[in-house]
Amino acid sequence: MNAPVAELTIKDFASDQEVRWCPGCGDYAILKTVQKTLPELGVARENQVFVSGIGCSSRFPYYMDTYGFHTIHGRAPSFATGIKLANPDLDVWVITGDGDGLSIGGNHMVHLLRRNVNLQLLLFNNEIYGLTKGQYSPTSKVGTSSPSTPHGSIDMPLKPCSFALGCGAKFVARSIDTEAKHLGPMLKRAHSHKGASFVEIYQNCPVYNDGIFDDIKEKKTAAETRLVLEHGEPLIFGAEKNKGLILNPKTLALEIVVLGEGGASIEDIVVHDETNKVLAQLLANLKLPDFPEPIGVIYCDPSAPDFTGEVYDQRVLVREGKEKPDLNALLRTGHTWTVD
């Protein structure tokens, strides 16, 4: 039997299957953090469902001792929508990657977010195709050399969080694979949000794209390369915590200022408001080397209704004032006639 919800531990969420990612893969760290966080969510193990598509990250459900469905390439959002339609009480996590979720499955991602299906979607972004041996992905930087782009990739990468906001996502956050102390709380925030919660996780692929996030992850550079978002706090970064972002009212763009230089004071710095969509869009667009990259909850609008909840409310409404459904009666409604 399953342990009571209050007594669940990290061990309860590890399946008996051998984990088969490459040594040093960022997925290991994410898996540990997820397994560690789930007992803290107060949800019974049998009500948790992990759904994935195809790719390295999509092996994730096999290692979770919950219900799991490893489906087909790019379509996990659609399976997850079906699961929620059939049973809205299940707690669903979609695990996907940059190729699975944004290339072959881009269309389903659009509609999952637009509909605001109440689930958590974790997008492991390593800017490369791992399982198919290293081809460039829709998030690879221009110039990425890969087996299919030996002379460097040409097409513009997309920014997952900007994409999600564009689709109408109501919860958009970013975190980092190996930083359990940040990722754990982000998972909890995503879980507590009612609707589709989109979490981009910077994830290192040590085999095909090693070190692409090092600037953001390494201690000695992190203070300058990441912008840690806290709701209600000014957008400050830098080793000296003396840099900040201001909004240029003429260009409607964020700009970096150094406090105390050119008359810039803390009052000028934009205060993070995670309910402000315009600000969220500005933040989601920030990329190195011009700007530090935001980490944390970029956007959260808890007021939007969730799709499956609405589907069920509508059914209740349709049933109101009606007799208990009777198929024999239905077949006999409309124009009928009797032959003696």
Partner: peptide
């Protein structure tokens, strides 16, 4: 038209999403 019966209908974003949602629903016990 028959939502008062035990049926949920879903117009998906494409043919693939439709079948995938149906399979997901079956996994979940519908």
């Amino acid at each position: 038209q028959q939502k008062h019966f035990n049926v949920v209908t879903f117009q998906a974003e494409d043919e693939i999403a439709a079948v995938c949602a149906a399979v997901g629903a079956s996994f979940a016990g519908s």
